[in-house]
Amino acid sequence: MQCPKCHAPMHTYNRNGVQIEQCSGCRGIFLDYGELEALTRLESQWSQPAPPPPAAPQAYPAAPAAPAWGAPHGGGHGGHGGHGHYGHQRHKSFGHMLFSS
């Protein structure tokens, strides 16, 4: 991504399991939603001999949201379909469908 201030490229760093973007130009830092809270939480734990915090929080601990009209084994119906379906169709649908208008 580009720095909103000086438009130089931003690089992602991992600080104690929190992903932050820092601008390669002006060195400004961009925090995603929730990351400031995550850093504050880490700071408050600093004095405690706590185990290291978990790695970067999962954006989607469960299957991502999907529309109700979606496929029963795929994105739809809560997305609890398992992955076997994709192994079966993956190459075919990838080359066949994902490259055409």
């Binding site: 989607y60 999907a66 795929g74 994105g75 379906h85 169709q89 649908s93 994902l98």
Partner: peptide
């Protein structure tokens, strides 16, 4: 649409959306 139709795995849709 590919994700909803079961043609794109949830992980790849999540990577794209995120």
């Amino acid at each position: 649409a590919w994700y909803a139709c079961g043609l794109l795995p949830p992980d790849e849709w999540t990577r794209f959306l995120t």
